[in-house]
Design a protein around this nucleic acid. Structure first.
Lengths: 121, 121
DNA sequence: CTATCATATGTGCACTTATTCATATATTAT
DNA sequence: ATAATATATGAATAAGTGCACATATGATAG
């Protein structure tokens, strides 16, 4: 059930000069919007979310991700590169394996909160 | 600062038969991943984030969004249609104006949490 | 009625993204 | 050495996204 009454103001350009300055204060800055969008974009693909769900508490090697997720090795590796470039995962080489783990608490928190909301309905 | 020590297991396919079933339990389901991705995708564009930041606590008409955000009327309207289709905004027609407001607490929460993280560093 | 204002929508285009395919690199085994 | 395994990467492709432009709808003012 959606809460009403969360809107404090009703704003239209007819009221220009009064409320527009207030709105200008409320828009987030473009640089902030860009960084925020980058984070959310990392979480905006189903396969990447499934991958992240595996890395939340585990350190997992690439081939295992491939098997569990049912994706091609190349697809996994490309996604990991993407996450690496955003500094969202860390990795550790051991022998011929590479273990990946999630390395960003923001993303971990957002993932979990989003999951809670989506799961319960 | 990123916390270490959040990884409880190290998983590789060499251990197949032991840990793979456990990992299978941990992957989120595809249907969940899809719905989750849809929510995050709504938050994955800078202009849409700036728009949402205005609708967080206010009901704002389209032309005002256009002015404050410095975007074309068409772009605004298309973004609003997108958000409408995801049931993220509600709207109210009054005369020739249409007032939009955010209508999804999940998104509101995720936006605020993401903003907190991104703003402080 | 006509004109104007506010918003919506269809179309096309530039750009991005996720994937596959082929290939490269690096490690271990024989 | 060669072969096999594990991972990475570049190129090509297909699908998706955001926006501009033109146009349509609907409401009000004259």
């Amino acid at each position: 059930m959606t809460l009403e009454a969360s809107v404090s103001r009703s704003v239209c350009q007819d009221d220009r000069g009064e409320v527009l300055p207030a709105l200008d204060e409320q828009v987030i800055e473009s640089s902030t919007a860009n960084r925020l969008a980058e984070v959310f974009k990392a979480l905006s693909d189903p396969n990447r979310l499934r991958l992240i769900s595996l890395l939340l508490d585990n350190e997992v090697c690439v081939h295992t991700l491939e098997v569990v997720l049912g994706m091609s090795q190349s697809a996994i590796s490309h996604q990991l590169r993407h996450l690496r470039q955003l500094n969202l995962v860390r990795f550790r080489k051991q022998g011929r394996h590479v273990y990946y783990a999630l390395d960003d608490e923001h993303v971990r928190d957002l993932f979990r909160q989003g999951l809670l909301h989506v799961e319960h309905g």
